[in-house]
Simulated assay, not measured.
Amino acid sequence: MKNIYMLFLAITGLISFVSCNNEWEDEQYEQLVSFKAEPNTQGVAWTYVRYKPDGIVKFDLPIMISGSTPNTQDRVVRIGLDRDTLATLNREQFGHREELFFRELPSSFYSMPETVTIPAGESLVTIPIEFSLADIDEVEKWVLPLQILEDPSGNYQVNPHKHYKRAMLRITPFNTYSGAYSGSFYKIFLEDDKNEALTINEHRAYVVDEETIFFYAGTRDVDFLDRKYYKVFVKFLDDGQLEVWSDNAENNAFKIDDAQPTYYTMEEEWDAVKPYLKHVYITLSFAYSFEDYTAIPGLRVKYSTEGTLSMQRDLNTLIPDEDQQIQW
């Protein structure tokens, strides 16, 4: 009787063991199609694209199928624009201040396929988007709003989560000198009062062409309604000198201050701990004055600046693609 009881327990345990194994072989989650484009606090995903004046730059946007088991069939996924979500995002972020809205990137600046195939056995592919950004005006905040469209035939299911179903790509061209510069050593004075200085932690530089960037003058940034009237252009010359000007000097009375040398330095250094990581340090020195003529109607307020701006760009040299190599 004891032997029969032990045999019963052994058979029961074996059945349980087999059942557990079979259970883990089954799909544990839903197989859903998703973008890989994590948004920031403003609801957009910064997408850096190398600036090329005469060429097309390809950006690969990842798209994947979730699940614990391999994808078992070819799936043709449809991609489309999502203007409704972009409009909702603008209202949530900026209310009725249309000058601050994200703008849909015009179709003349990009091309992409309407579908992408995820082959059987694969769970991750990329959508090739070709950008041509030579004449783009970075005063506007360009966004390419994409969504995964439903499939009437049921060939795939779209992830219902809004951050996976949609990709709000904040298109940002970059060159060697663009990016976020530290303003800790850059002083801004009101009416030449050297006793009271303003500083801004970050001055962002935007692309004009391969050798030229622009900043916004004084304390202005991308969230000022009148920002387009206060662009400061900086061109990098071969001899370490800078050419600095404004395209609106007749109205904002922009003037370079020759009392401070105008130049730039660029140095490279390998990381002491991570031998594959290269640091590039760029320092800019220039000073200027301008008049704010739009903030208060009928009143012109003079500002002057002096000091240096600096940027550190870190490059992971193990990554071959430049847009992915830079650790933004």
Rank of each mutant, 00 (worst) to 15 (best):
S68K: 07
S68L: 02
S68D: 05
T69A: 05
N71I: 05
T72I: 12
T72H: 11
Q73S: 15
Q73A: 13
Q73W: 06
D74K: 15
D74A: 08
D74F: 06
V76E: 15
I79N: 08
D82K: 03
R83H: 07
D84K: 12
L86W: 00
L86E: 04
A87Y: 04
T88D: 14
T88E: 13
L89M: 13
R91P: 09
R91A: 06
R91W: 00
E98Y: 09
E99D: 09
E99Y: 03
E99I: 04
L100H: 04
R103Q: 12
R103T: 12
E104N: 05
L105F: 00
P106C: 09
S107Q: 12
S107V: 13
S107N: 05
S108G: 03
S108K: 14
Y110D: 11
S111Q: 10
M112K: 13
P113L: 01
E114R: 10
E114I: 02
T117F: 06
T117P: 11
T117I: 10
I118Y: 13
I118Q: 13
P119N: 08
A120D: 09
A120G: 12
L124N: 13
L124I: 13
V125G: 14
I127A: 04
P128T: 06
P128Q: 06
P128M: 08
P128W: 07
I129P: 14
I129T: 08
E130K: 15
S132D: 09
L133A: 11
A134F: 08
A134K: 11
A134D: 12
D137Q: 07
E138P: 03
V139G: 03
V139L: 08
E140A: 14
W142D: 05
W142L: 02
P145H: 00
P145F: 00
Q147W: 01
I148G: 02
L149C: 00
L149S: 07
L149H: 00
E150H: 00
D151K: 01
D151E: 00
P152E: 01
N155E: 05
Q157V: 08
Q157H: 02
V158T: 05
P160K: 01
P160Y: 03
H161G: 04
H161M: 01
H161Y: 04
H163K: 09
H163V: 02
H163S: 12
R166F: 04
A167C: 10
A167I: 01
L169A: 11
L169C: 05
L169I: 03
L169Q: 07
I171L: 10
I171Y: 02
T172V: 13
P173Y: 02
P173M: 03
P173Q: 09
N175M: 11
T176G: 03
T176I: 02
S178D: 11
S178I: 04
G179Q: 06
G179T: 14
G179N: 08
Y181S: 08
S182N: 15
G183Q: 10
G183P: 15
G183N: 11
S184L: 08
S184T: 14
S184A: 13
F185N: 15
F185S: 15
F185G: 10
Y186K: 07
Y186G: 13
K187I: 00
K187T: 00
K187R: 15
F189L: 01
F189A: 03
L190K: 12
E191K: 04
D192N: 10
D193C: 01
